[in-house]
Design a protein around this nucleic acid. Structure first.
Lengths: 222, 222
DNA sequence: GTATATGATGAACGTATGTTCTATGTCAAG
DNA sequence: CTTGACATAGAACATACGTTCATCATATAC
């Protein structure tokens, strides 16, 4: 079976060329620049790969604008070109996956090349140690306060204080959920943000805190 | 006596616009972008000033190439722009104020020095035109989906499409609120995100859209 | 006055450039 | 063998965009 995350050599070539051209000329290349740069005979080939790269989130484009091309942070980190950005209060955070009912959050990963990343600034997260992001998928662990498609930023930790919003793995239900955390003796009360929902009360030993939510970002259709 | 190094206001405008455009879009502007940006009626005017600027060593151009334009270090230092800041994906957005019941959102401000700003990355907002941020204060216009302390990112616009989340000023109630927008004939239905709340229905003429919400950021206690 | 430089206008013109369409070859899955 | 993704080619099209030109107004210098 073909590796799912393998990006074709041609695509890597193109991203690399764009990056080089940008550094050299101070403007993005045209489709035909890329065509010559990577050595293909048709502009349609370039267009084809740019479409794929855009869909994969490596490139953003301004339709019909000449040189309307920009590399995303994902592409830059993919190139290992993070050295591009100097000082900057920009922080790159890995998106380790999605919250899906039935699966635990995977262990905090090393910075693999093709881990999806999210760029944030220190205006949003002040500290970057052990910070990671999760994309919320589906409604299973969601109440009115967190929606499908939201990105939650978490700091990895096993303990939580009362009132913290945490991602927890429930051993017995075999699922991850986002809730407010309250310790009550040998039990843990998991309180949905929406007061209309009933709290979940579990023995402490089946509740595994995976991380504490430090920010929630919701992007609406632009 | 006119100073020898005095550069016309128009020229300063143009250099400034190029610099801003570059930071926002990651590519140089076209002649027509500049034309609109500085408000002249003919592309020939832009060409004229670009020729002068090139001769004076403020810009370099690649003849006949679209967006074949780059600012020299001379231009950058002239602008007081700290050296050659590489095109960054960081965007600074003004926080124009808070949403408070009883007050309209102030008009979109010019970029004053002492406006509070928020740094975001393009991973969060892709476009920066007319984007501003509001801090949500109090609960008066809030439902379960937006909380006190949240920051909402908006693009300023007077119209809205059905389903957009917008900030609207209600003439008769004299207050601003965040709701989903639905046009229904001569009326507008303002739908809270929380289905448990009742929609507000108003005649279209008392509903003034102030901007469309493109992102919501909630920071929890670190 | 007559010059001369500066700044602006509107209308072209030519080509650079993104996009679309049709067609072809390869390769793995069924 | 057929089917369907993937990659490529070539040609044509529509328009985005740099450029040129003729014209006009307003200064300052001679």
């Amino acid at each position: 079976m073909p590796e799912k995350n393998r990006m074709s050599e041609r695509r890597r070539q193109i991203v690399q060329f764009i990056h080089g051209y940008l550094r050299e000329h101070g403007r993005p290349p045209t489709v035909r620049d890329i065509q010559r740069g990577v050595g293909v005979a048709s502009t349609a080939v370039v267009k084809y790969h740019l479409d794929r790269l855009e869909k994969a989130g490596y490139v953003e484009r301004a339709p019909r604008a000449s040189r309307g091309l920009r590399l995303t942070s994902k592409a830059l980190s993919w190139l290992g070109a993070a050295a591009d950005e100097p000082v900057s209060s920009v922080v790159r955070v890995p998106i380790v996956g999605s919250i899906v009912a039935g699966e635990p959050v995977t262990a905090y990963p090393t910075f693999d090349a093709d881990v999806d990343t999210l760029e944030l600034t220190r205006d949003i997260i002040s500290d970057t140690e052990n910070v990671f992001a999760l994309r919320v998928r589906g409604d299973s662990m969601v109440d009115a306060s967190v929606h499908d498609g939201d990105v939650v930023i978490l700091r990895q930790q096993e303990e939580a204080n009362n009132g913290d919003m945490v991602a927890v793995w429930l051993e017995d239900d075999q699922e991850t959920t986002l809730k407010y955390f309250y310790r009550e003796g040998r039990y843990v009360r998991l309180q949905p943000a929406n007061p209309a929902y009933e709290p979940i009360i579990k023995p402490a030993e089946v509740v595994r805190v995976q991380g504490k939510v430090i920010a929630i970002i919701r992007r609406l259709a632009a």
